[in-house]
């Protein structure tokens, strides 16, 4: 039985003395002038008056300049899908020949029946029977890892799981962080030294689970199973600790990658433990 009451703390402004080097690293708030120079072109997150051509920000975030194009990237925003991104999503709806997947974006992503691996060989034709069995593969609420394969006209992402790395996630728990904190890396599947696997979705959804060695011969029946493997108490504790580390990093607005998680994990042993 443990309950702890605390007083709120004030914000600490320890980076007051950090200088803002130039325009491209500037942090702006809505309505703030970014540039008075007429040669720049305005892009996402900016607006300008017709008369004077001054570019102002319509969002709170960092100014990004590519050649002559000015845009503002926000710190707290929904995820913008880019082709090739690894994402973690949750099925929200099973529709005709497709699943709708929540990926923390403005719209749900679409996972086509033709974009998944089906049991019985990769090159197998999709039949009507497969359509009827869609819930056997992915059902409402299921969590999966996938790759963004493209975007539709309306901005919705199309995703695919045609690789044995992707697919249903189990044996662990789910953490959500702001998407801007997850760093784009070579790989987003990490094995931490504590025997825990982490799937860092670029959409800010993170899956922390027990380490399972990569499958040698791919058993497709097992890929779509909902059964968890037995998990030992120590692994359970490690998973919980890693999850808490990730939420703490997110709260302090620190970048999230495998090394920052490992460092946070090691540092977490120095703080007192409740039990």
């Amino acid at each position: 039985m443990n309950v702890e009451f605390l007083l709120p703390e004030a914000h600490q402004n320890d980076d007051d003395d950090v200088e803002m080097p130039d325009v491209s690293d500037k942090f702006v708030t809505p309505g703030e002038t970014i540039s008075v120079n007429a040669q720049y072109m305005r892009s996402h997150g900016t607006f300008s008056d017709e008369k004077d051509g001054i570019i102002k920000s319509s969002l709170a975030g960092k100014v990004e300049i590519v050649n002559k194009l000015i845009s503002v990237r926000t710190v707290h925003s929904r995820y913008n899908a880019e082709i090739g991104d690894l994402i973690v999503g949750r099925i929200t709806e099973v529709a005709q020949k497709r699943w709708k997947v929540d990926i923390n974006s403005r719209q749900d992503a679409v996972l086509l029946l033709s974009a998944i691996n089906l049991p019985g060989g990769v090159m197998r034709r999709k039949t009507e029977e497969d359509e009827l069995q869609m819930r056997e593969y992915f059902s409402d609420g299921d969590i999966l890892a996938a790759e963004v394969s493209g975007t539709f006209q309306d901005g919705a992402a199309s995703i695919q799981t045609r690789n044995h790395k992707y697919g249903k996630l189990k044996n662990g728990s789910f953490v959500s962080v702001p998407p801007s904190l997850v760093q784009r890396c070579k790989t987003h599947f990490h094995v931490l030294s504590c025997g825990v696997d982490v799937v860092l979705g670029l959409n800010g959804y993170i899956w922390v689970c027990k380490h399972t060695p990569p499958l040698q011969d791919v058993d497709l029946e097992a890929i779509y199973s909902n059964e968890n493997e037995p998990i030992s108490d120590t692994t359970r504790e490690s998973i919980a600790r890693v999850c808490n580390c990730i939420t703490s990093l997110a709260r302090k607005f620190m970048i999230i990658n495998d090394s920052s998680i490992t460092l946070a994990y090691e540092a977490s042993f120095e703080t007192q433990n409740v039990d």
Partner: peptide, 29 residues
């Protein structure tokens, strides 16, 4: 508002083992 069967099982087993998803015990706030 949705939860996957695997997550559900993980939570139920965690409660049974007295280690919840965020490392708390059953009766911890």
């Amino acid at each position: 508002v949705l939860i996957s069967p695997a997550e559900r099982e993980y939570i139920i087993n965690g409660v049974d083992h007295n280690i919840r998803a965020d490392g708390r015990g059953r009766l911890d706030y």
